[in-house]
């Protein structure tokens, strides 16, 4: 019985995304598997990422939404997707954001995360990699939820 709430919530979220659409600038690319979705994302208005398209992969465990989803930026040259150059986003697509860790709450959902990442990118003034990018990418676990990020100046 481990996944009643999880399946119920994901079905609701998916129906909502399909009927009313995701936030402006985002497109649901893939959700054939209820536990793994891909959503493309563009930053609206003027920003250092103008004209670029990114994609986020969401993986949900059976304890979603009590537990946060695993969210990473997709690197897929065929589709032209690359993780954005941003001080809190590693080149392997991992994101250092408290909203995916200790700041997660079960009332958040895919749509609210998409808005959060859009605004995280929109507010970036300068494209810079995290200072410890190389070391992190060398040693990072494949699932970013296993990394104990220390969140700094962001409140996302």
């Amino acid at each position: 019985m481990g996944s009643r709430i999880s399946a119920k919530r994901l079905t609701k979220e998916l129906t909502e995304l399909k009927t009313n659409g995701p936030p402006t600038g985002c497109t649901l690319i893939q959700a054939d598997d209820l536990e793994c979705w891909v959503v493309s994302l563009q930053v609206l208005g003027e920003s250092v990422y103008e004209g670029e398209e990114f994609a986020l992969r969401f993986k949900f465990s059976s304890s979603y939404p009590i537990d946060s989803p695993e969210v990473t930026f997709v690197n897929c040259p065929e589709r032209g997707w690359k993780a954005p150059v941003h001080p809190h986003i590693y080149t392997n697509g991992h994101i250092c954001a408290s909203v995916l860790g200790s700041g997660w709450s079960p009332v958040l959902n895919v749509a609210s995360l998409l808005l959060t990442f859009q605004s995280m990118l929109a507010s970036c003034k300068k494209k810079e990699l995290p200072p410890d990018n190389d070391r992190y990418v060398r040693t990072a676990p494949s699932n970013p939820k296993q990394t104990r990020f220390v969140y700094h100046d962001d409140d996302v």
Binding site: I66, D67, S102, G103, W104, S105, P106, V107, D155
Partner: peptide
Amino acid sequence: DQFCSFHVEAVNK
């Protein structure tokens, strides 16, 4: 608002 998001709604706090 911050208190509620981080110290009340967040799981395990």
